[in-house]
């Protein structure tokens, strides 16, 4: 597919190719909008990983095109060296086995907890609605 036919897909593909570690998520790392995205960010941050992040919420086409590229239906999605590593479950599992640090090619911080850090309260609905009216 040429660049003119699907610029959104090309742009996402380009973002994946040009960043060693890139996370597609709901919200931003400093303000995740979903428990699964929050948990994935927490695992990366606990290892002291540096990564690019893309918020998929502003335009539904981002998620649509991303899932078409990755053959993965849910968000978040973590890519390392252009390859899909997984979503929240796999990232969390890999954190606990130590595979996440080795996949990222980093030494975990000395104070990194053994179990993947929990970012949201257990049982809390993963979807959080942001109240933009409050200021």
């Amino acid at each position: 597919m040429s660049a003119t036919e699907n610029p959104m897909r090309d742009e996402i593909q380009n973002a994946i190719s040009s960043h060693e570690v890139i996370l597609f998520m709901k919200g931003r790392p400093e303000q995740p909008m979903c428990g699964f995205s929050a948990r994935t960010v927490a695992a990366l941050d606990a290892l002291g990983a540096s990564y690019a992040a893309v918020d998929i919420l502003p335009d539904p086409r981002i998620r649509q095109e991303l899932s078409a590229i990755s053959n993965w239906p849910t968000i978040p999605q973590l890519f390392v060296n252009g390859e899909l590593v997984g979503g929240c479950d796999i990232v969390t599992e890999m954190y606990e086995t130590g595979e996440l640090a080795s996949t990222l090619g980093i030494e975990p911080k000395a104070d990194a907890p053994e179990e993947a850090p929990v970012a949201s309260e257990p049982g809390a609905p993963p979807l959080q609605i942001r109240n933009d009216l409050a200021s």
Binding site: N71, G86, I90, E93
Partner: peptide, 10 residues
Amino acid sequence: SRIEQHRRVY
């Protein structure tokens, strides 16, 4: 692989 296992269920 783990990715493929999850894809299979999805």
